[in-house]
Write a protein that binds this DNA or RNA. Structure first.
Length: 271
DNA sequence: CAAAGGTCCTGCTCGC
DNA sequence: TGCGAGCAGGACCTTT
């Protein structure tokens, strides 16, 4: 479900409600997510003050003095701030009850998400240690991307969706940035000029930044921490638009499966 | 044959 | 031959 813009929108939505609060109680209803939720979390967090909410790629980081709660939303996860008396819904697997009476709830029907704890520096955690740069950081540019791809024969779409290359680009924004850069999704990485890599890096940054501004993309059910949808869906040029006219040339947008992921592109404009 | 916004893990192939 | 990197596919789940 959520890519960088949706995770960042979630972060911004929940942070003001939970930063500075103390944890009154931790409830684990369903520990079996992608990895089990650590069963000692309740005693680990009880009475502790939540300092801030950060993000690394698609991971949300709830920062405490003595460590960090690492959360991932997987394909179908969402985080909401609710009142203490709000009814518990199906797939509400985890919650933090806060000193101000409200709660942070994780809902995740498919259970591909994760709730983990580290008492060490987050950057040392195995899931985060090997991640590539943030797309909106200085370190991410066309020269870097070209370096990543110059010796690879697999497709450019797979390269930019690989978190070791760059974080936060999922299926939607991979399709969108490739369309904007006029690069065909299946083009082998080692057959793209550095000039085109520069364009692509720029388009990735732009599409993500625009999507963050619009509160992310709501396709079916994404809502931010305040329960509001994102508005970037209306700005999508190819994703989910198979058969519709390409905004560039008017020919129909195509949808093909690539590496087991639905891929939208214009066969005329993208090469 | 269903597809959905993620990504780790395994076991294979490829090139030096 | 051996090694490491790259690569494809499977796995994990539920809902529409």
């Amino acid at each position: 479900m959520p890519e960088l813009p949706e995770v960042e929108t979630t972060r911004r939505g929940i942070a003001p409600h939970i930063s500075g609060q103390r944890i009154r109680r931790v409830v684990i209803r369903q520990p079996r997510l992608r990895w089990p939720i650590p069963d000692d979390l309740p005693q680990l967090l009880k009475g502790r003050k939540l300092l801030s909410v950060a993000r690394r790629g698609k991971y949300l980081l709830l920062v405490f003095h003595h460590g960090t709660l690492i959360m991932h939303l997987g394909m179908s996860g969402s985080l909401r701030i609710v009142e203490a008396d709000a009814a518990v819904q199906k797939h509400d697997h985890f919650e933090l009850q806060l000193s101000n009476g409200s709660q942070l709830r994780l809902r995740d029907p498919r259970r591909f998400g994760a709730v983990l704890w580290t008492g060490q520096a987050v950057t040392d955690h195995p899931l985060l240690a090997a991640l590539g740069p943030e797309p909106l950081d200085e370190a991410f540019d066309g020269d870097y991307l070209h370096d990543c791809g110059k010796n690879r024969r697999s497709s450019i779409k797979q390269l930019i969706m690989d978190g070791k290359t760059v974080v936060g680009v999922g299926n939607i924004y991979a399709c969108e940035s490739l369309f904007r850069a006029a690069i065909h999704p299946t083009r082998p990485c080692n057959r793209i000029s550095i000039q085109r890599y520069r364009t692509l890096a720029e388009e990735i940054r732009e599409v993500l930044a625009e999507a963050v501004t619009q509160g992310g993309t709501t396709l079916r059910d994404f809502l931010n921490g305040d329960g509001k949808p994102g508005y970037f869906a209306q700005s999508l040029r190819v994703y989910g638009r198979a058969g519709e006219p390409c905004p560039g040339c008017g020919n129909p947008i195509r949808n093909k499966t690539l590496a087991q992921r639905s891929t939208f592109y214009c066969p005329t404009c993208q090469h």
